[in-house]
Structure formats: structure tokens, C-alpha cells
Design a protein around this nucleic acid. Sequence first.
DNA 1: CCAAATCTAAACCGATTGGTTCAGATTACA
DNA 2: TGTAATCTGAACCAATCGGTTTAGATTTGG
Lengths: 220, 220
Amino acid sequence: MIAPMDARRMDDRQGSIRKGRKFDQVLDGARTIFLRDGFEGASVDDIAREAGVSKATLYAYFPDKRLLFMEVAKGECARQADEALQVLDLTAPPEVVLRGAAERIVAFLSSDFGQKMFRICVAESDRFPALGQEFYQSGPLLVRERLADYLRLAVGRGELAIDDIDLAADQFAELCKADLHARLIFGIAAEATARDARRTIDGAVEMFMARYGMAARKLA
Amino acid sequence: MIAPMDARRMDDRQGSIRKGRKFDQVLDGARTIFLRDGFEGASVDDIAREAGVSKATLYAYFPDKRLLFMEVAKGECARQADEALQVLDLTAPPEVVLRGAAERIVAFLSSDFGQKMFRICVAESDRFPALGQEFYQSGPLLVRERLADYLRLAVGRGELAIDDIDLAADQFAELCKADLHARLIFGIAAEATARDARRTIDGAVEMFMARYGMAARKLA
DNA sequence: CCAAATCTAAACCGATTGGTTCAGATTACA
DNA sequence: TGTAATCTGAACCAATCGGTTTAGATTTGG
């Protein structure tokens, strides 16, 4: 039951709203409960209990439930994005880079955190617009931008032929969901088997290369 | 304020649980409120008021809120699916058939109903598993099956070359979401412009044909 | 026209919620 | 040490919720 709060004691404490010493406890507890029960489903009392903090303290840090959730979501998405899209050798052939990217995307979609956060943000994003936008920007949009950066690189190298880079990036990300995402999100499958993942990833890479690889250009 | 309840007075009244004359009123009211407020967000009192019916009557038809929502979702999804995937000339060239299918898929994703139902089902599908499964079966799965049927046809005709038909169908459906679905779902864009829709649809058809069209086979 | 089926309105229940308040304990800091 | 900041715990609030009950009105069909 010991929360892993290692290297984040005095880092991102810029213009935030914290005042005291139990800031991290609150955030950790909130993350646990929100991920377990969703946004509406999570009660503030539960969060305070899990955090080992009085409700008064919690409300001293975060003026309301939404702000608290936003903070949790923001931090966690940034963390996931950082540690996911780091170690990719962008000089490798497109098939290799794309496969690596696909593996990371699939891993995120399949993860417990990815699924629950997606669910919550989708659910709440019309009565709570700021949340949807925040998630979109630090999720799908970020992935698209990184992918687009690489695609531009590969096009410059003559490895790929793409006119609408943004569209291509979105298409690839979307292909990585095929058959997997819906089954997970709607609870048809509890988790993605390695076989399913491989099938989707292979399919995505092959399709992308068929469309944008240089081999196809011989026909044009 | 007159609900359009035309040709469904004495049709699907098989083994259901109705007893009286205000069945349709309840369902119509429930649909309105559920679509406006979501599942958790909708209060049974609101539904009864909108339906012009007492709460006691409502509970005489539907033992609880979930059953009521399931009935609404089931009926509405079936209706949408029927009227959407009907008028397609399957003998036309693949580019044409696929474009037609893509247009319908995009239209559904962009529709108010499509968005709200998706949101609700995603949100509720882990604390309410039957709902997620019901939606998956009468939504994504149904689309995939119809698409797969057509693809098999086209492959038999020698117009396409596909080994994993189910995967191809999923890929196509997924490509139709590129850049559109996320922006709508997370409230970045209020609605899809005709230009955006065309871009996504063209992109999906071109990519699919590049991968599975007969032209590509010349290389293998 | 009467009796059975259906519907109504409103009161009611127990539970839960997000959020507030406050007197007093604990901590940090100088 | 002393004082200011921080934290506690529990009581409290108003509101909302899904669902039940009941006594009586309305409709239906024979």
C-alpha cells in the first residue's frame, strides 16, 4: 500500500496552487480512486480516505473535484507520453520505426490506465469540455505530432511519399486500433492477446507501406 | 413536441414486458433525456416528466433504469443500422462501393445520436457490461460483418485481393474515423465540415485500394 | 354501464453526493 | 521555545438520486 512517489518532490511546483506537505498524497490517492471508479463514480470521501488525508485538507489544495481530476489526468498523460515515445531509432527503415510506434500505441490502448482514462474522458467531455480538450492535446494530438515529425523526416529522406502528412499520421494511429480498441473499450475482451496485437500491428504497417511506401510510386 | 411514433404500434411486441398503452411515450421520453443527459446524468423523474407519464407507470414497464436504457439503445441502433446500410449497389467498382460505405460511417460518427450513444456506452460499459456488449454487437460488429460480406464478394469477383477479410473490414472502418472521430468525441470540433469529411473519406478509400486493390498485386 | 385494467400525483424512503465549518491537534520554523 | 502554518475528524448542509407506496382518477372493453 506504499505509493511509489519517488522523483517528484520539488519539480513541477511552478504557479500551482499547493501550499502544504501532503500535496502528493492527495494526488496519488485521487489517481487511484479516479482510475478505479471513474470521475462521477469516485467520491471525494473515498479519495481523502485513500490519500490518508482529511477532506478539509483535500479541499484546501483543490477547490473542486474537477480541478483535482484535471491535475491527475494531466500529470499522468504527460508521464505516459514521455516514457513511451522516447527510445525509437528514427534512422531505421520505415517498416521498423512504424512497427515500434505501433507497438507503443497498442501497448497504451491495452493498458489499464489507457482504457480507463479514455473511458472517463469520453464520458465527461461534454459536460466538462476542458477535460476532453486536455486529454486530446496530451493524447491523440501529441501522438500525431510526433508521428508527423518522423514522417516528414522519412519523406525528406526519400523513404516515403506522402502529401498530407497529418492525415497519414492520423491514419496510422487509427489503424493501430483496428479490432482491438473497440473490443477492449466495450468489454468484449478483457485484454489483448499477443496474437491479436501482432495481427493488428502487422496489418497497420503493411497497409501504411502499401499506400505511402516508395514501391507504390512505381505505378504513378 | 409531437413525438414521431409512426409505424411501431404493434410490431415488436413479442416477449417484451409491456402491459399498457403508454409504452411508446415512455420510450420516446427516455430516448430524449438519455441522449441529452447521458445515462448517469439522466434522472428518472426527468424522463417521466418528458414522457408525460407518472413515475409509477414508468416503473410498471421497466423494472429499473438500466433495462429502460438498454431498450432505448437497442431499438435506436437497429433503426440507424437498417436505414444506413441499405441502398448500396454492391456490383459497382470497389472504389465506389467503399466510398458509399465510408460516407455512411462518417455520417453516423458525425451525427448527434452517434456521438452521444458512443459516449454513453463507453462511459458505462465497465459498470454495466451488458450495455457495452449490446452496443458493440449492433454497432461496430454489425458494420464489420456487412463490410466483410461485401469484401468477400469483391474478392470472389477478382476485384480485390485480401487474405484476412475481417481485419481488412476493421481497418477500413477505422480509417473512416481518422482525425474526425477524436475531434468530435473530445469536443475539439462541434461538427465535421464537409471538407474534413471528404478528406478522411478519400484518404480511407485510397489507402484501402493501395493495399488491397489489384494494382498492388503486380508487385507480388 | 360496470368492473377490471391502467394511470396519476405526491408523499415518502434510505442512501449518497460535493462541499463547508470549526475547535483543537500536529507540525514546521526561527 | 513559541508562533504561525498546516492538518484533523467529525458533524453538518442542501440537494439529488433510484425506487416504492398508496389512495384515488381515468380508461378500456365486454
